[in-house]
Design a protein around this nucleic acid. Structure first.
Length: 103
DNA sequence: CACATGACGAGGG
DNA sequence: ACCCTCGCCATGT
């Protein structure tokens, strides 16, 4: 576990309900603007152990990035349950929901 | 050390 | 807006 990875975990934990953050944003705040892929790795392998709000991480384009149909459906459901709206393209407005006030 | 993995992202056609 | 290529990073084998 590197400091970078630990930062990613803590940042994800800091995102409040009803707000989201992109992979790249998390990576940047964690110390490496180019480490977006590591964020996806953390979500995939560390969620269970650290109780991470995994559903609050989305792509830079405002869309859900999970390939697995079931999982992506669950993510959308969880976000909608927190009050987030999706447009007909399955995209959400980052200017409205992205969390920036941390760190 | 070489190679594969993953829920990325920017750039170009 | 969609598709493909390439660069990037920590891990696992």
């Amino acid at each position: 576990m590197t400091i970078f990875t630990l930062n990613i975990i803590n940042i994800i934990k800091s995102i409040p309900a009803g707000r989201v953050m992109t992979y790249g944003k998390v990576a940047t705040l964690a110390g490496n603007p180019k480490g977006a892929r590591q964020v996806s790795w953390v979500l995939k392998t560390q969620t269970a152990k650290h109780h991470l709000p995994w559903h609050r991480i989305i792509g830079k384009d405002g869309k859900i990035k999970i390939k697995d149909y079931e999982s992506s459906f669950i993510q959308r459901s969880l976000l909608e349950a927190e009050g987030i709206k999706f447009d007909l393209k399955g995209k959400i407005d980052l200017n409205t929901y992205e969390w920036n006030d941390s760190f």
